[in-house]
Write a protein that binds this DNA or RNA. Structure first.
Lengths: 323, 323
DNA sequence: CGATTCTATTGAAACGTTTCAATAGAAAAT
DNA sequence: ATTTTCTATTGAAACGTTTCAATAGAATCG
């Protein structure tokens, strides 16, 4: 693999001249520059990114750190982030890590967007600094160089809950995901707020069903719940659509008609939502927009334009057939 | 940001000792090693990946290059690749690039898996070499250091086509994606083979419908097709599920009953397939397995175990309600 | 014509590691 | 007591760039 040095030798110029030339620096007269570039190209020269980054102390790469690639949820968001990153002349790398987080720790990127519960706050506060800003999408965290860009989860769940209540449901239950999901727990809060607003009390035993965000887990949890409780609530709010779909499946199998006997509203509005039977009423999350906002925020910090880039993400209820 | 040098100064040892220590090299007695590691840790030392890579001429990172993050199709595959990469002690970065392909060209990774039609064969053959193997999943390409890991697309489409034919359909049409999708065109070939096997001829005008792999495009293309043709084929084979779903929507709206008036089979078996009405008959692609095979192949090349790691991916027809 | 400015080119340090070869001193062997 | 081996540590080169400062020669100026 030829280096600048090799090209320099063949072109009979110095390394600096080659460097300037391949980077199209007008310092070098066009004629020389083109000659050198030709030679470099012929030799199959390709810059070494690591050497470059080392010297420049900058990578022009943004990292997106996820806890996994699965789920229909993230791809839209990734697109939003990607658009902004490209627009800024950067590259995006997406990485899903569980333990090492090497890509974050060893500074392969100039800034990062985090949506990875495997990364602890301690790690994040340790790596973030003036020159290395972070945007977190899955937690609240206080740090001068870390900015959360969060969904208004309470509001969303409140929307869903009120919707059912307004439609006349007098008893509700919530299908939650695992406790360590920040978003999930905020959604639960929103549900409780909705109950309060209607002067209803909340009893964890009877109105909280725990699953883990997958369709299957929702199905299992609901089946179990139904076998244990004497009377079925008139409405269910789920912390995400997958679980809502699992819930509907369990209800149907138990002979409970949705939405007549029990209504169900989900959260996220995944693609599937409008295709299932009955079509799922859910809280729509503008995922791409969320990604865009996160990326913009990050560049705001990188470019140090002092001014807060404000962000607002609006959730809205999409009323379909299930509730 | 402290460097080895800074740590060395504070610990009163040489840079080499620090380097050996933080890398847990038993050359340094445990006592010293721990002392140095403590100090490094206290100072917030973090290795500089670029310096490391530059020196070692190795990154321990595998790149996955996609043309976009969208579509429900890729996430399963990414998981498969990810599993293998982690198992090998590497990291995975996923990147979607259109123009620059910097991450590939500037050697940020030790090997790459390509599924990106924006990357031209010329680029790939230029960068691939003994020390930098490539696996391509979206094309055929002859090069000693590039290995294709492809789906048996013809066979798959043949499966779908024969299924309809066996069920008695006497006229078929194919909904294709854009011409420059390798997979898509092979699927078209498989369809033609199916027709041949039953001694049916293929007329492009009447039996080939072009869309672009999205649900919407399938819907539009089919609507247009229906408005133009006098008689409707008894069966449709689509190059992917999204278009099949669009097709079904168009057919339904035109009052054509699926599967009674016309049967439809898709390709891929995306999550949605079993949820739509009627549930989609389709050719199941084991996406995760595909990813696993690709990654294994790549490591086979990296580890130079001469021996071909063989791979076989089996597609099978999933018969549901649409055909 | 000597002094000045400008242009094209270059030398060399620096970025932060890794790792080979060297060294000094202690322990073991003769 | 001298040589040999071993242990702990270190110095320095190298990886491939970028970029500041230096240089030499040409062009312009007074």
């Amino acid at each position: 693999m030829p280096t600048l040095k090799d090209v320099a030798r063949k072109a009979n110029v110095s390394v600096s001249t080659v460097s300037y030339s391949v980077n199209d620096n007008p310092l070098i007269p066009e004629e020389t520059r083109n000659r050198v570039k030709m030679i470099a190209n012929d030799m199959g020269y390709r810059p070494n990114g690591n050497a470059k980054n080392l010297k420049k102390q900058k990578t022009n790469i943004i990292g997106l750190f996820l806890s996994g690639f699965s789920g229909p949820f993230f791809t839209d968001m990734m697109e939003g982030i990607h658009d902004v990153v490209l627009e800024k002349g950067f590259e995006l790398v997406v990485s899903s890590s569980v333990e090492q987080h090497r890509l974050l720790v060893e500074r392969y990127v100039d800034g990062a967007i985090i949506l990875n519960y495997h990364m602890e706050n301690e790690l994040l506060t340790k790596v973030a600094n003036e020159k290395f800003p972070l945007v977190v999408m899955d937690r609240m965290i206080e740090h001068p160089n870390i900015t959360p860009v969060l969904l208004p989860n309470e509001e969303g769940a409140l929307l869903g809950t009120k919707h059912l209540l307004e439609k006349g449901a007098s008893s509700l239950a919530f299908i939650a995901g695992s406790k360590d999901s920040f978003d999930g727990e905020r959604r639960l809060q929103g549900f409780k707020q909705g109950l309060s607003a209607y002067n209803l009390s909340f009893c964890e035993k009877e109105q909280l069903i725990r699953a883990d965000f997958t369709e299957e887990s929702g199905y299992i949890a609901m089946t179990e719940y139904l076998s244990q409780s004497s009377e079925v609530p008139e409405g269910f709010v789920a912390a995400n659509d997958e679980m809502a779909i699992g819930t509907i499946r369990a209800l149907s199998e138990a002979g409970i008609k949705v939405p007549d006997d029990a209504a169900v509203v989900g959260f996220d509005d995944i693609q599937l939502a409008k295709y299932i039977q009955p079509a799922l009423t859910t809280v729509h999350v503008p995922r791409k927009e969320w990604g865009v906002q996160a990326a913009r925020k990050l560049f705001g910090m990188l470019e140090n334009q002092g001014e807060e880039v404000s962000h607002v993400i609006n959730l809205k209820l999409v009323s379909r057939d299930s509730g």
